Amino acid sequence: MKEKLYSIGEISRLANVSIKALRYYDKIDLFKPAYIDPDTNYRYYRDSQLYHLDLIKSLKYIGTPLEEIRLAQELDSEELLTFLEKQEKQVREKIDFLLNIEQSITNVKKGMQRQLEYPSLGEVYVVEEEEVRIIRMEAEGMEPESLFNASYSKLKMLIESTDGFTNTSYGAMFHFEHYANLKDISYMYLFSPVLSKNQISAVTPDFELTTIPKGKYICIAFHFSPENYLRNLQKLTKYVGDHQFQPISDIFEFFIPIHYSPKKQEEFRVEMRVRVAETGEEPKKN
């Protein structure tokens, strides 16, 4: 029985491969027609060629480059199995990469959602917080008015070297005290919330992986200015004293951009929080 020949249009429909792609595969000697009519230059394909096209389609579907597909065509079964194992590993790496991006986006969204749920700015509030993993570094005696100096940039460089999706929330830690002057405040640490496992694996001896513990926190949020900063810090510490809360942590301070427009003056929102003892909890620093 004579084997049926298919036109390029028919093979395109049968295999769900575009005519443009079939012509390109012919041009680069990846998948050539069985016969070309010398009078019309029409391409024709045999039934038996379809399984060759199946291999091309399958490997292209998982992102294998055409040059590697060409090599795969020449492999025997054992070699092809090894080749597919390598492709499987590459696909797993891509999946892990995308899952890591997804986790980064989820964590950034949580931070942004929190901003939308603040009570009125300048109002002290009490909230139960979940544990937050952070990467921190010593602040080298920084103070609020010198927040964005080279020390902060060092932390930012670590975070950005591990993920394309950049964290826009950073923070600082300083002792809980009743401050009368902005110059009296000295940061002990700068930190950034962990977005992904890539950041964890990149931590060097200059940095420390730790947590902001879960628990009850007294918080306040406000737009940054030197005047607002001291006034709202004093509100926070006064509230803790007036309500006889026992602080059991340093003050954790988060600073977040209010907008991202290069045409506007930079503005930041600051949130301060201090963990306080639950009933019966030991007053111990974290």
Rank of each mutant, 00 (worst) to 15 (best):
M1G: 15
M1Q: 15
K4V: 11
Y6K: 13
I8Y: 04
I8D: 02
G9R: 12
R13E: 15
R13S: 15
A15Y: 07
S18A: 03
A21I: 06
R23N: 08
Y24T: 10
L30Q: 06
F31C: 01
A34W: 03
T40N: 11
R46W: 09
L50P: 04
Y51L: 04
I56N: 03
K57Y: 02
S58A: 04
K60I: 01
G63D: 13
T64R: 12
T64P: 11
P65E: 03
A72L: 00
L75F: 06
L80C: 05
L81T: 15
L81W: 11
L84F: 09
K86I: 08
Q87S: 04
Q90K: 15
Q90S: 05
V91Y: 04
R92T: 13
D96R: 14
F97V: 06
F97K: 14
L98W: 05
L99E: 15
S104Y: 05
I105F: 10
K110N: 11
G111H: 04
Q113S: 14
G122K: 03
E123R: 05
Y125L: 03
V127P: 08
E129P: 06
E129W: 08
E130N: 02
I134V: 03
R136H: 13
M137Q: 14
G141V: 00
L147M: 12
F148L: 01
N149K: 15
N149Y: 04
A150T: 12
Y152H: 15
L155K: 12
T162R: 10
T166N: 13
N167C: 14
G171E: 01
A172G: 09
F174C: 00
E177N: 08
E177L: 06
Y179H: 00
L182I: 00
D184A: 02
I185K: 00
I185F: 00
M188V: 09
S192I: 03
P193H: 04
L195R: 04
V203G: 07
V203A: 09
D206G: 09
E208L: 09
I220Y: 03
P226F: 01
N228C: 10
T237P: 12
T237Y: 01
K238L: 01
K238Y: 01
Q244D: 14
P247K: 11
S249P: 11
I251W: 06
F252S: 01
E253W: 00
F255W: 13
I256E: 03
I258V: 13
I258K: 11
S261C: 03
V274I: 15
A277V: 02
A277S: 15
E278L: 11
T279D: 15
G280Y: 05
E282S: 10
K285N: 07
